[in-house]
Computed example of a mutant assay.
Amino acid sequence: MRWWDIDAVLELEKTLFPEDAWSRGMFWSEIAHARGPGATRRYVVAVDGTRIVGYAGLAAAGDLADIQTIAAAPDHWGTGLGSRLLTELLRAATAFECAEVMLECRIDNVRAQKLYERHGFEAIGFRRGYYQPGNVDALVMRLTTGSDGGTAAGSTSEQGTEIHG
């Protein structure tokens, strides 16, 4: 993800997460940590033609990575895009030499939970009222890396969607 992607990402963010969308400043801050020596973040966008149809981000600290966000446009649900974005983040976690990857997922987002489970994540707890202002609980999930490292998916789908850093 680059600074010029932020407007399109924000548009998608507000569509997908209307109650708790990230701000422009939050994205700027995250991508500022994703460049140069000592980078601790990896943010990517998925582009179909000229349109951003997905994005994802991961933060690393020591041997622990945390998936910050992952999103796919509704017209790309069921195409494998979410899996490809997640795979890219897991590759980054491996590159950052993280032993574990953590994430929070809305308790009512069963589609996302199934995606994470297919990639080996396990539920380990809850965060009550984590998503505000809706006061929705989060399911906390963890993946211990080392076996696959998320290397199963390629970087381009049959539909021509590409993932860029």
Rank of each mutant, 00 (worst) to 15 (best):
I52M: 08
A59F: 00
T156Y: 01
N109S: 08
R51W: 09
D108W: 02
T94Q: 09
S155E: 08
A65M: 05
T144D: 04
T69K: 10
R84C: 01
G80T: 10
S23W: 05
R51E: 15
A93R: 02
G154R: 11
C105Q: 02
Y43M: 06
T161F: 04
A32Q: 14
L85H: 02
I124P: 01
L10C: 09
G62A: 13
G38D: 09
T144F: 06
V53H: 04
G62Y: 01
F126A: 00
G149N: 05
E88C: 06
R24T: 09
I163Y: 02
R24Y: 11
R42Q: 05
A93S: 12
M102R: 12
S147E: 15
Q68M: 14
A152D: 08
D75L: 05
G49I: 13
P74S: 10
K14H: 15
V140P: 01
A61W: 00
R2M: 09
Y55V: 06
G149Y: 04
G57I: 04
A21H: 13
S23L: 15
G36A: 09
D148S: 15
V9H: 06
M1D: 02
E13S: 03
G54W: 11
G165I: 02
S29L: 14
A99R: 15
D137F: 11
A61M: 12
A138I: 09
I163D: 01
A112P: 01
R2A: 10
A21D: 02
R24H: 15
A92I: 03
T151G: 13
L81R: 04
T50L: 12
E162G: 03
V110M: 11
E117G: 08
Q113F: 02
T151M: 04
R51L: 13
L10E: 04
T87S: 15
A73N: 04
E100F: 11
F27M: 10
A71D: 00
G62Q: 10
Q113P: 04
S157P: 11
T15S: 12
A39N: 12
G78N: 07
E104M: 07
Y55F: 15
A92V: 03
H33V: 05
Q132N: 03
G57M: 05
V47R: 15
Y43S: 04
I70L: 14
Q113D: 07
E100Y: 11
R111I: 14
A112R: 01
R42K: 04
Q159P: 01
E117H: 06
Y131S: 03
G36S: 11
E19I: 06
G54A: 09
V101C: 07
R91P: 07
V45F: 13
G36K: 13
W22A: 11
S155L: 10
V53W: 05
A8T: 06
L12T: 01
D7W: 01
E11I: 03
A56N: 02
L89W: 00
A21N: 08
D7R: 13
R128F: 12
D48W: 14
C105M: 12
R84T: 07
R128G: 04
I163M: 03
V110D: 14
E13Y: 06
A60L: 09
G149R: 00
Q159N: 15
W28I: 15
S147T: 15
F126G: 00
G129N: 13
I107V: 15
G38N: 12
R35F: 08
E11A: 14
E158R: 14
W77A: 12
S147D: 14
L103N: 02
L115V: 14
D66H: 13
W4E: 13
P37K: 14
G62H: 05
F96M: 11
W3C: 07
